[in-house]
Design a protein around this nucleic acid. Structure first.
Lengths: 73, 73
DNA sequence: CTATTTTATACCTTTTAGGGTGTAATAATC
DNA sequence: GATTATTACACCCTAAAAGGTATAAAATAG
């Protein structure tokens, strides 16, 4: 399953880069701590608007991406 | 508000390019007709996994996108 | 090692998305 | 014009997301 979603890895990585805890990110993004957890844990059925709130913290948002152009590490 | 989300415009455009009705897309993607409607109508609180089901029909998925790199038409 | 911080898991309640159905409005076709 | 197909809107119900709290585990600091 690896990076089920690019978004999960992106959030995890960025958050740590900024030295934020899950709680700090949650507060800043205006979502619950539990949401950040679920998200970083790979929960796929999260709400799009909440994801966007979090991505906004990193100057990003959700968008359509070609499946071929996946993040190869 | 314009294209609140790239995803909305993307789905609308792609669906029409393929000459599919909302119902046809819904059936193929395995979601309800109502979901396609809500999505194309700009509903922000849709579920990420459902959005991915739809985007998969077009060889895409959700991913983080820089806000600067928005779709300029 | 111990103490502290951070993250993960579990239980519970409230809120709401999803989807079905029906109806209205709009667009397309004749 | 009328008829049909497609899309939009409203109502309801069920399933589940979100979030809080509490506890446990893991990671970090001392």
């Amino acid at each position: 399953m690896a990076s089920t979603n690019e978004i999960i890895r992106f959030v995890k990585t960025r958050r740590r880069q900024l030295g934020l805890t899950q709680k700090e990110l949650a507060d800043r993004a205006g979502v619950g701590l539990r949401f950040i957890r679920d998200l970083e844990q790979g929960k796929q059925s999260v709400r799009l608007d909440k994801v966007n709130q979090v991505l906004a913290m990193f100057g990003h948002r959700t968008g359509p991406v070609r499946v071929e152009d996946r993040d190869e590490l």
